Simulated assay, not measured.
Amino acid sequence: MTDELRGLLRESAEAHQPDRARMLARVERGTARPGTARRSRDRERTRALSWPRIVLATLATAGTLTASALMVVDVDAVHDPDPPRSPSAVGRAVPPTAAGSRTEDGPLGADGSVDPHSNAYWAQSNVTLKAGEPLTALVVELRIALTEGVKDTGNWRTRPAADFDLSARQEGGFLVYRWTLKPGRTVPAGEHVFAGQYDHATGGRDAKDDTYRIDATAGAVERGAAVWGGFA
């Protein structure tokens, strides 16, 4: 055989691309028992149909989880903490804490103290209001922590009782006294005392958790002011 003929046969063989699928099908038909080819084709069809369903189910599950994760991240990203309420809004007193006291605000000042006449069974807490200008609106709140035996026994103020609405009740672990200036009444410039009286368990009582807050409107320009503090 010449080199030229060998080259032609090699090129012909390399150019030939057998139909693999058709050849396998022909072999299967020739060797399978009756009915085997049909069952084989059915299995292949079932397998072919099952894989897309499995893939779609997997993608759907992954998509659901991803969407849920994105929703959580999105909510966390856009949620802002509740804004702090303005401490100068009369009638919307925010319970203060003894820490971070603010005892002066413009024409308004205040001081909290346990009356020196308190004893081992009874106490009086005084809130002294200092007004540099007349007040046209005023809320004074005194909060006594409900330590053992604390019970309301009365209250008083240096201003006329008829000028104020008064409430004294337990709220959130405190005995709360609240004096609210009635509409149309005023509080003159100067110092004014608001006091709450209460029994307590025998012995010295720690007033570290007691607090007060005052919200007021002062002067002709109706300027809002607020002060708060503790009794430590």
Rank of each mutant, 00 (worst) to 15 (best):
A99N: 11
V55D: 13
V140D: 03
T97W: 04
T103Q: 07
V78C: 04
T128L: 06
G149I: 02
H117K: 07
R159Q: 14
V55T: 10
A93V: 10
R47P: 09
A57P: 08
V140T: 06
R92L: 03
S68L: 11
A32Q: 12
L108C: 04
A62V: 14
I144Y: 04
G112L: 08
D74S: 10
P96R: 08
G106Q: 05
T36Q: 15
R41C: 08
A60P: 03
I54P: 08
V90P: 07
R45F: 09
L146M: 09
V139C: 01
A93D: 08
D163Q: 09
A123G: 12
D80A: 12
E44G: 12
P160V: 07
Y121V: 01
D111E: 15
D163P: 04
G100W: 05
E141K: 00
S86F: 00
I54C: 09
D105M: 05
E148M: 00
V78K: 02
T31F: 10
S50T: 14
R43S: 13
D82I: 10
T58C: 08
S68H: 09
T66G: 15
S88K: 02
V78P: 04
M71L: 12
W51E: 15
A32L: 08
R143E: 03
D76G: 03
A131R: 03
A32Y: 01
S125K: 04
V139A: 01
V140W: 04
G91L: 00
S125M: 06
S101Q: 09
P160Q: 02
Q124H: 08
V72Y: 00
H117R: 12
M71Q: 09
D152F: 02
V114D: 10
D111C: 07
S40E: 13
R143L: 01
L59K: 01
N155L: 09
R102K: 10
V114F: 05
L65R: 07
R29P: 10
S68Q: 08
T58W: 10
A120L: 13
L56A: 15
R102I: 06
T153S: 12
V78R: 07
L70C: 12
V73Y: 10
R45N: 14
V78W: 03
G63H: 10
T128R: 11
T61W: 12
V73S: 14
S68G: 11
A77D: 15
T61V: 15
V114C: 07
I54M: 14
S40K: 07
S88A: 06
V94W: 05
E133H: 01
N155D: 14
G35P: 13
V94L: 06
A69C: 13
D82F: 03
T46H: 13
T103L: 11
E141Q: 03
V114K: 11
V150A: 10
N126W: 05
T31A: 13
G109N: 04
G100Y: 04
N119R: 01
E44A: 13
R45C: 13
S40P: 01
A145G: 05
A137G: 09
R159S: 11
D105T: 05
